[in-house]
Every structure is written in structure tokens, then in C-alpha cells.
Amino acid sequence: MSRSFGPDSPETSREAEMEQQALRVTNLNKYFGGGFQYRKLVSWCLPVTANPPAVAHVLQDVSFEVGRGEVFGLIGANGSGKSTLVRVLSTLLLPDSGSVEVFGHDVVSAAGSVRALINRVSADPSFFRNMSAYENLLFFGRIYGLTPGEIRVLVPDVLRRLGFAEELAAEQMNHLSRGQQQKVAVARSFLTSPVMMLLDEPTTGLDPRSRRDVQRFIRDVQRDHDATILLTTHDMEEAEVLCDRISFIAGGRIVASGTPLALRERVARGRPVEEIDMEDVFMELTGHDLEEDEAPAEVAAHG
């Protein structure tokens, strides 16, 4: 029997769906801790610890979808599971159950394909601190397949758009301020033209001007380059300015999702939505204050 590839065939509609759907997270679960207790093997000579490491259920049946070209915000307090989720999407953590697909590629079974599509900015701009900003960008550009010539052209352009003085690119990273380092981290990720950007609190710790520079750059890239962006933050204002849709995460669960307006309407109960503060929306829907840290499950589990 020949397979149909006509406009209405299942294959075509699946491809069309993949074209439009950038990210699909389905019933994702992640646990930390509670591993095998090696001391049990030698319990005759070493005491088995009375309090074995607790199992922390860091992500609990997380499901959501992000459309192509969308800016999707994930808002939660510290320790709510945002960074763990981003690490799973980045192929840096393996899920314990559930699935994650980036443009139809599974992050576990097709990790190589996913890596070619994504890049990530984290709140902690990790670099080789004794190398210059340019040397760092050169290396990370090279391992994404860019040639030195391409990097020489791209770096000044990206840094300029981030408001980073080009002459500072020759400085060692440990001579740069926190804000300058974070801009280099953003440049590192966007340099490689990712189709999906995972921005894990990219503006945390930045001064207001640097924060605006980075936010403007993210908006420009999303508008000009059709990039899909997943942004985690606990800055409500940033989320409202940048995101098309938002999900609130608390205790490793997605507790509410929608556009900023729709989320306000859920708690409005007759009040004018423009008078409702998004932090109040978060508190009402999650039962947590955004500034209040949740128990950092990953740390607790590892001791």
C-alpha cells in the first residue's frame, strides 16, 4: 500500500503541527535524591545513616506547549523548579518520566538534534574567567559550527546591540562587571542563531539600564528572527513586557497559564483588570508570595 503525502495526509498535518509547535512538555516529572545507599553494602563496619537523603519531587506532571515564535514566560519563586525545567529542556538533565519535544525532537532520544536548535542563558554567567570576552565567544561560536571569520563579523554586531562597548571584548571576563558579564552571556547564546532560546532569569542582578538593554535585545531578536523564547523570571514587570503567555509554577507544578490579561481576569471577580497587580495574581493563584523562597528541592535532596 502506498503512503499518501498529499496536503491532508497525517504526515503533512504532523509536519505542519511541528512547524507551529516549538515546544511540547507532557507530564514531565523529575526527582532528586534518595539514591542508592552505598553504606548499606558495608553496614558491618560503617553505620548506615539514620536519615537517608529525602526524595524531592522537583517537577510534578508539568505539561505545557509553546507555539513557534512565541515568548512564553515561566514565573515562580526561587526553588519552584524553573531552572530544573530549563535544564531538562537544555538536555542537561534527564527526566524521570514524561516527554519533552523541541520542534518534534525528543530531548532524550534526539538530544543532538535538540542541541542544534537551542541555546540558553542562565542567571549565573559561567565563563572561563581568565579568558577574554572575545576568546570565550570565539570558543562557544566555534563549537556551534561558526567559523572564526563569521564570529569576527557577528560579535561586534551582537555586542553593540546589547549596549556592550566593543573595546571591552578584549578584557578578561573577571575584569568585567556583573552586568557586562551577563551581556556577554546573552551574546554567547544569540551568536549561534538558536531557533529556541531558553532564558533562565537573564536579567537577575542587573542594574536597570543593563536590564533594559537586555530586554530590548530579546524583543528585537524575537521580532526580527522568528525565535521562540522561553523566559523564566520572578520579575512580573519583565514578564508582562516580554511575554505573550505566562505560566505560574509553584512547588514544581504549573498552577496557572494564560495571557497576562487572562490571568488577571481569573482573579478579577468584578474588579477592573488594569487595577490588579500581577504579583497579587501570582499570590492568589499559587498561594505563595513571589519573593518568598520555596525549599530548594535540588539542594535539599543533595544535602
Binding site: R68, F103, A116, G145, D157, V158, S193, V195, D226
Partner: peptide, 13 residues
Amino acid sequence: MASFTNPMAAPRS
């Protein structure tokens, strides 16, 4: 910055 208009990785040589 290279443009990416399709959901596929930017071409690398």
C-alpha cells in the same frame, strides 16, 4: 546575526 526563518538549525559548515 544569521537569520532563522525555519524551525531548523542554522546551517553550519
